[in-house]
Design a protein around this nucleic acid. Structure first.
Lengths: 207, 207
DNA sequence: ACAATAGGATAGTGCTCCTATCCTAGAGGC
DNA sequence: GCCTCTAGGATAGGAGCACTATCCTATTGT
């Protein structure tokens, strides 16, 4: 299959494919001759992955590139999944440059839920976020944090047991990224609905 | 206070202030003379609101403008809060143009949680999102949805009782938007940590 | 007389994500 | 042999966003 056919099969314009090749998101095809290159199913699934990561998950080119380069470099799966999580849930934005951060509240969460007490990106990001909320004057009571963490603990339990890791790396990133993004959004939307519902209830009671 | 002083007090460049004036985000000052305008504390707090909405919450100019215009038009507070919720939690992105949508799962959530059975943006957005997940082949079991909704119900209960609405409209939007955004992010980060913790546990058990 | 200022118009900047054009060299069909 | 097609490289263009800068005129305090 050559570039034009790859374009037709994936619905991505030839110009964009060339762009992705330049950016290193898409590995080059097997160069048959000077003016002919052969692309395979791997390129199709890779392009679909790129499209989904852009349009559904909303990552930018640099983020996609970094993820894909890790995959191509044969980074271990657990590490890769951690990177996907960081990128998709936006754990990279705050406080990662300050090394490990601790907050009393963050430590408390870990203790209460009996989660393993090891530093991680997720934990640093949480602690940085708690510090940010503190600094912006948004109170986070221990009760609230307890309710939150109890909830997500239950969710994670259900969530992780329903996960089976696929063989193909493209597929792995796809399911992990899409899953994390969609579940994250789902929770946000449910929270919005719950919030709105409670607000209506309260409004009705007061009226 | 004139433009320059307003700029100095808020740390926003005069050029940006003029830009916000042009875009209608900032109401014009009281024109004392042809070359002199008077700005007040309201402009200061409005500018701070704009800054926070941009840099912390991450809204774009159009979204901020639409929210602020509603506030200036004296839209009722409940409606305004609903708009803030839509904007901050990204409920506008899917399925709002198709009118009211229903999904069996979405209905089930409302019934299980005994939430008021009325159409709302939050509900439409949830249903559209469930449909999207369905179409992308990401399964959402009733069990999972039940765990999610139980969790957010608990959170919303804690959350809403801790909320007191401020007098000033700028302040109202500020606290609502910042609160919703930060709490949403907090949940996402907690979920990430919970997920990572459970993954470590499982990995340790298997190893 | 002169520096300073408001507000209006208009253009430019930096970033991101493409999209288009041009080029050369090579291969196959007629 | 000639024409068309193609890959891949270089380079430029374009659209959207959020500013940022420049220039202008009219006006005013000093």
């Amino acid at each position: 299959m050559q570039l034009k056919e790859l374009s037709e099969r994936t619905g991505v314009s030839p110009a964009s494919i060339k762009f992705y090749l330049r950016e290193g998101l898409l590995p080059p095809g097997r160069s048959v001759r000077a003016t002919r290159a052969e692309y395979g199913e791997l390129h199709v699934s890779r392009l679909e992955l790129i499209q989904t990561l852009r349009r559904v998950v909303g990552l930018n080119i640099a983020q996609i590139g970094s993820l894909l380069r890790m995959a191509d470099d044969g980074v271990p799966r657990l590490e890769l999944l951690a990177a996907v999580q960081r990128t998709v849930l936006g754990l990279d934005d705050v406080g990662r440059e300050h090394g490990d951060v601790r907050t009393p509240a963050g430590d408390a969460v870990v203790r209460f839920r009996n989660w393993p007490d090891v530093p991680s990106d997720a934990r640093n990001s949480l602690n940085a976020h708690l510090a940010l909320m503190e600094s912006l004057g948004v109170p986070v009571t221990d009760d609230l944090l307890d309710a939150y963490s109890l909830a997500v603990d239950a969710i994670a339990t259900v969530n992780i047991s329903a996960t089976t890791a696929p063989e193909d790396v493209n597929q792995l990133i796809m399911t992990a990224a899409v899953g994390m993004h969609l579940h994250g959004q789902l929770i946000l939307k449910l929270l919005a609905l719950a919030h709105a519902s409670h607000a209506i209830r309260r409004y009705e009671t007061e009226a």
